[in-house]
Design a protein around this nucleic acid. Structure first.
Lengths: 225, 225
DNA sequence: GTCTATACTGCGATAGAC
DNA sequence: GTCTATCGCAGTATAGAC
């Protein structure tokens, strides 16, 4: 009897390889190689089965280690989750705070660039993003607050962009909070259904949702009925 | 020492009362009173902490019973989850298959009615809807397939409404699948953030999202740039 | 139909050898 | 830094009295 067997089917191993390929730089650069591989394994497990249904044995087995080895690199399972959620929220926020967006032309172009990039990030990293959106309840109160803070920062960036276009007169008058909720729902809810092998690339979906966001704020919908 | 103490704070008890008030008819009529109260307790626990983090003790304690009593009414914790998800998906589907919508006038009016009602249902029942949207991974394969079937039926109803408006010429040409994804994301993602004590009633939010859905399909957004 | 008590299982985390 | 072995505990579900 072999000492250890893979718990994964060929399909799962292939999915793991795609996940690794798509997120080589998701993790903090000062982490070691084993840490990064543990985080990637944890992302896959948490996304597939949820945080509480995932065992430390699952995470460690995903990189060929014993369960005890995980505790050399992370003090607890919860901190593995927190590291994933912190990295994902920071990367997504960086997408919309990019200085190249600030330099863009009109208010509509800036908003479209933000929605497009924010959407494409969630699509490309939909596995990690699903964890970061759905597993808040697994965090300790302090870590929970920290993630909520990052979400508020993101919301404020979108809010400022919509408000700017409205006061400038580029967008039709409307309830800014509701509009921001709506466009964030487009960008975020895709983690529930998006697949990289579907009909749209992350960038194509980003461009489409940017167009929908503009239709929301330019407000030429049912006015002409 | 008292025989049993409430595990809940006054705020939680008040929240429970609100939950009961808002969902008296969520459950199948042929269920007994204890079954319904157990389901309502389970909804609250699953929504707050997730299916796997909730224990059968939590669910039973929510209605003042011992953990063993749950198994008189349900054969397993998983079947409690399945009953919740089946009821929620069937009720939400019934909202958009309502014959009164079929009778409505134009394609735009029918689509608006569907989005408005589907959104309002998710908002009013946002606690149960959060469970029904986020806890798929807790189901056994057979039950999972059954819920996925109900989701496909719902998607098809929206798809038919958008397609009908497009072939009729009432809506601008566009990718029907993408548009349906977008409007369903609006209606569903609200379970992540909606609160009944927020600024919008379920019906107000429904009307607003119906308006956004029309802006998406009437497509007068960036064409006039 | 509800209770108390508990069987059985499996998890998070640690001890200590190498 | 990794392993094997295991501790302590919590979870689902059941047994059997009332």
């Amino acid at each position: 009897m072999p000492r250890r067997q893979s718990r994964f089917t060929p399909e799962e191993i292939a999915a793991d390889r795609r996940l690794k390929d798509q997120s080589p730089d998701l993790w903090n650069a000062d982490l070691g190689d084993v840490e990064k591989r543990l985080l990637t394994s944890a992302v896959r497990c948490f996304a597939a089965n949820g945080y509480h249904a995932t065992t430390t044995r699952d995470i460690a087995a995903g990189v060929g280690l014993s369960p005890a080895a995980l505790y050399v690199h992370f003090p607890s399972k919860e901190l593995v989750l927190f590291e994933i959620m912190r990295a994902a929220h920071e990367r997504a926020l960086a997408c919309v705070k990019d200085p190249s967006i600030e330099a863009a032309g009109t208010a509509a172009e800036r908003l479209a660039a933000m929605v497009s990039r924010y959407t494409a990030w969630h699509a490309r990293h939909h596995v990690a993003a699903r964890v970061s959106q759905y597993e808040l309840a697994g965090l300790t109160p302090g870590h929970y607050d920290e993630i909520i803070g990052l979400r508020h920062l993101t919301n404020e960036v979108f809010r400022a962009a919509v408000e700017h276009g409205a006061t400038e007169g580029a967008f039709a008058p409307g309830d800014v909070n509701r509009l921001v909720r709506g466009m964030l729902s487009l960008s975020i809810d895709l983690v529930r259904w998006y697949r990289l092998d579907g009909p749209d690339s992350p960038e194509q979906l980003g461009d489409f949702y940017a167009e929908l966001a503009l239709r929301m704020v330019l407000n030429k919908g049912s006015d002409g009925r």
